[in-house]
Write a protein that binds this DNA or RNA. Structure first.
Length: 586
RNA sequence: GGAGCCGUAGUGUAGCCUGGUUUAACACACUGGCCUGUCAAGCCAGAGAUCGCGGGUUCAAAUCCCGUCGGCUCCGCCA
């Protein structure tokens, strides 16, 4: 019995029509004389009524049917009797009166119920991923992901971008994340690397004269996992020739807006910009969540002459005093404040000083150490009003910012200041080109080594490298780093200077990036691009907490696939072919 | 590499701190029966776990200790 309609399609206009549907038994309600079965397929769910007066055969078949059996059902669509309409169902106005039914397949009792919002160990969900994906909410995540990538494709293709595939078996390069390696059989002892991104290929395509490239690209990074990090993930990757920052940002705004539209949401463009410097000053991070206040200020000048030893000592050592205004925070109890202090210490602060501005002025464990002037100056520096609170952290600037940035999110959530349905977008621009890595004792690219410095920064590259500014830009939504890109270096000598800055010798960068340097010498056009994290974008729009829910077959924190059992050991013959030996017993 | 949380019938939890009156409890799911308008159907009955795994302490361990495996969150790491 081949289907003539989807389970989600019947509605009032179908009244009287005979249709056949195929689907899974979502629920079965047996009244003895009458059996209701909700039949589900990709299109939705519909109620089928098995009435022995209509079909003895179908009714007795329905008695033996169990959840997740696969049925074919032929019947007449009719309006439901008065009082039995189900408004929470899309097809709730109608039902199918079954005249003929057939079991296409039976099913074991599933290890968990196939319905939305279940509370089941993720281990089990991943092991039976095919059943997990059958559940409406996760099923919809996967469909949303398709709509978003599809809308991105449409948007880009309408603007002249073409999709070009780049290799998955490529060359391992220094810089960046750990590579996934693939041994070569034909060249024993040599390895391919899976791409961390198509970066070098897309730049090469610009040199080939493809004006606008895009790719929904799979990327691989062998680093430890997080809720928003998987070893393989997907980027909406693009590159454009003869452009500046504004061109790339405008296209990106459009892609994100089309993704929001695909999710039934509205987004205003253009996305506003904020300098890296401002983001760090006000939010202590380069990916600020702008849905709520709790802004920060630097209070070094306020406490320059203070008698309060903790602050004076910090300033003397070249540290910083950073404060965060907490709007309407005065209602926090003493035990709340104590637990935030404890939390700050967990995060690495040596302490947390809190102030509450109530009717009688400031309350704080340290008011007695501070002068009236200092309190007044602090109040105006932070913009405190009656009913607010403030958290102050003293120490090295980066450490203070880390602590306050983390507290900011947690406090806002606790105070109910975060509107979960709200979306706030911002471009962060004006990034430093380089940072100094203390562990390795060398400069590292903040973005990647192919990012162009600004015109003005060329001069300072060697004598004040940390002052140099990158032509890079990150788009941040609700505090999530959604994508980033840059205008690239398109001249060989600049690229060489950059490699040298990163501590690479000419031999080294010739060996690893010689092909790029040479390509730059054959008329490389100015170009730039960006990559958006598709998994994160879907996660945000689906209102999920992990990108695992947006990936059909994700991996666990230890990078294994619970469905298939990957990774797994391989046979000695396979290893021999590759000229490999492991030092572990398998 | 590190920190924290979790692991008890098919599923989700309680019990663990304070070891023994626990025959390991409850809900959902499951099985059987009754039931012609339900949609989380209802009612009745029933089956189902030696408590992730290994070791130790003890007269006695789901419970205390050590180790280990797995899952999750985070730090480091992630150009």
């Amino acid at each position: 019995m081949k289907r003539s309609a989807g389970c989600g399609s019947p509605e009032a206009s179908f009244d009287g029509k005979e249709i056949t549907v195929n689907g899974w038994v979502a629920r079965r309600r047996d009244h003895g004389g009458l059996i209701f079965i909700d039949l589900r397929d990709d299109s939705g769910t519909v109620q089928a009524v098995f009435d022995p007066r209509e079909s003895e055969q179908s009714h007795s078949l329905a008695e033996g049917v169990r959840p997740e059996f696969v049925l074919a059902v032929k019947g007449k669509v009719r309006m439901r009797p008065d009082g039995t309409v189900n408004p929470s169902m899309k097809t709730g106005e109608v039902e199918i009166l079954v005249v003929e039914a057939e079991v296409l397949n039976s099913s074991l009792t599933p290890p968990f119920e196939i319905k939305p919002d279940i509370n089941v160990d993720e281990k089990l969900r991943l092991q039976y991923r095919y059943l997990d994906l059958r559940r409406d909410d996760l099923h919809e995540c996967v469909r949303l992901r398709h709509r978003i990538s599809s809308s991105a494709r449409r948007y880009l293709e309408d603007r002249g971008f073409i999709e070009i595939e780049t290799p998955q078996l490529t060359k391992s390069t220094p810089e960046g994340a750990r590579d996934y390696l693939v041994p070569s059989r034909v060249q024993p002892g040599c390895f391919y690397a899976l791409p961390q991104s198509p970066q070098l290929f897309k730049q090469t395509l610009m040199i080939s004269g493809f004006d606008r490239y895009y790719q929904i690209a799979r990327c691989f990074r062998d680093e430890d996992l997080r809720a928003d990090r998987q070893p393989e993930f997907t980027q909406i990757d693009l590159e454009m020739a003869f452009v500046d920052e504004s061109d790339v940002m405008a296209v990106t705004d459009g892609i994100v807006a089309s993704a929001f539209q695909a999710a039934g949401k509205v987004m205003k463009t253009p996305v506003p910009r904020m300098s890296y410097r401002e983001a760090m000053e006000l939010y202590g991070t380069d990916r600020p969540d702008l849905r709520f206040g709790l802004r920060m200020s630097t209070l070094d000048d306020v406490f320059r002459e203070t008698g309060f030893k903790v602050f004076a000592g910090t300033l003397k050592k070249g540290g910083s005093i950073r404060g965060m205004k907490i709007e309407q925070g005065a209602g926090m109890s003493r035990s709340d404040l104590d637990s935030w202090t404890k939390r700050a210490q967990e995060l690495g602060a040596s302490g947390l000083v809190w102030f509450v501005l109530g009717d009688e002025g400031f309350r704080s464990p340290v008011t007695k150490f501070l002068s009236e002037d200092e309190l007044a100056d602090m109040k105006s520096a932070l913009g405190l009003e009656k009913g607010d609170a403030a958290f102050i952290v003293a120490g090295d600037r980066a450490g203070c910012d880390d602590v306050l940035h983390t507290l900011r999110g947690e406090v806002a959530r606790k105070l109910g200041a975060v509107d979960e349905g709200d979306f706030r977008f911002v471009w962060i621009v004006g990034f430093p080109l380089l940072e100094f890595d203390r562990l390795e004792g060398r400069y590292k690219s903040l973005h990647h080594p192919f990012t162009s410095p600004t015109e003005e920064s060329f001069e300072m590259l060697e004598h004040a490298p940390l002052e140099a500014e990158a032509r890079a830009y990150d788009i941040v939504i609700n505090g999530i780093e959604m994508g980033g890109g840059s205008i690239r270096i398109h001249r060989r000598e600049v690229q060489e200077r950059m490699f040298k800055m990163l501590g690479m010798s000419p031999d080294e960068y010739e060996a690893k990036f010689g092909f790029l340097l040479e390509a730059l010498e054959y008329g490389a056009p100015p170009h730039g691009g960006l990559a958006l994290g598709l998994d994160r974008l879907v996660m945000l729009l689906a209102g999920r907490d992990s990108i695992r829910d947006t990936i059909a077959f994700p991996k666990t924190q230890s990078a294994s696939c619970l469905l298939t059992g990957a990774p797994d050991s391989v046979s000695g013959a396979q290893l021999k072919d590759l000229g490999l030996k492991t030092s572990f017993d398998s």
